[in-house]
């Protein structure tokens, strides 16, 4: 039984570890902050991977090596070893707290500072069960919204309840697709109309809950063009699984053309 246990534990360890590394699971990342997050992931992964393999291999080995052979010999009588205890406690603390210390500046860079002053503004609104993206237009101001004007069935500005009486709303553009120019910092404002949603863009290594009652400012910068999917990452009701969107990163030129065309449509 000891040998069987060793084999099972070692096989599970080997197979799990193999599949962790044999395939690239992480989506291709295109954001400015992704390399830092990915690097911290890899550091933690190697550290935890070593511990995982060591612990499981040790477990398998120990249960086989110290199986009862049916002889009269007794087990070793020991209540422990304080020095050993202290040693591995300190080493573990250094490992865990060290990882924490190394990763903290990344979090700080992501979340402690607001967007650069030159960043372009986009408002992201989640509602059951779609994402809407609003651009402030040339005046760089978002028009007022009113909940009593919200009508999701009409889509666009009406879905967000934009008040057309507000002059700032005149040049607001609402899109179901998040158009972004490449290499520009984006100042996102996250809102929710009904329940908590979460704006998750795997390719950007970006996630933030959109909470009713909060206007949350976040920022990121896409560095490659292409279409990238957005998924909702906070349970929001029966349509949670299909509340997805597209982030379309295009060249600066294409973006300007798109926005101009949308503004023209409004006239």
């Amino acid at each position: 039984m000891g040998l069987a246990l060793l084999l099972i534990i070692w096989l599970i360890t080997f197979l799990s570890s193999y599949f962790f590394v044999a395939h690239t699971w992480w989506p291709h990342a295109i954001s400015a902050s992704a390399p830092y997050i990915d690097h911290q992931w890899h550091l933690t992964f190697i550290a935890m991977g070593v511990v995982f393999i060591a612990a499981q291999v040790a477990l398998g080995f120990v249960v086989w090596r110290y199986r009862d052979h049916g002889d009269a010999a007794k087990a070793s009588y020991s209540h422990g070893n304080n020095k050993l205890e202290l040693t591995w406690t300190v080493l573990t603390a250094i490992l865990f707290l060290g990882l924490n210390a190394i990763g903290s500046p990344i979090w700080a860079a992501e979340r402690f500072h607001s967007a650069d002053t030159g960043a372009m503004k986009v408002e992201v609104t989640g509602l059951q069960f779609a994402w809407y993206f609003r651009y402030p237009g040339p005046d760089n101001k978002f028009g007022r919204t009113r909940p009593d004007l919200e009508d999701a069935s009409l889509g666009g500005l009406s879905a967000l309840g934009v008040d057309s009486a507000d002059p700032a709303a005149k040049d607001d553009v609402v899109s179901g697709v998040l158009f972004l120019p490449v290499n520009r910092e984006v100042d996102l404002t996250l809102r929710a109309q009904d329940v908590i949603h979460s704006f998750f863009v795997p390719a950007m290594r970006f996630k933030q809950d959109a909470v009713p009652g909060l206007m949350i400012h976040m920022h990121f910068r896409p560095e490659q063009t292409g279409d990238y999917e957005i998924a909702c990452a906070e349970l929001c009701g029966l349509g949670h699984y299909k509340m997805h969107g597209i982030m379309r990163v295009v060249s600066e030129q294409e973006y300007d053309q798109w926005l101009a065309a949308r503004e023209a449509d409004k006239q």
Binding site: R144, T145, R146, P147, R191, Q193, G213, M215
Partner: peptide, 10 residues
Amino acid sequence: ASWDLRTNSY
């Protein structure tokens, strides 16, 4: 202070 969507302010 909560964001009130009626008044569009905190």
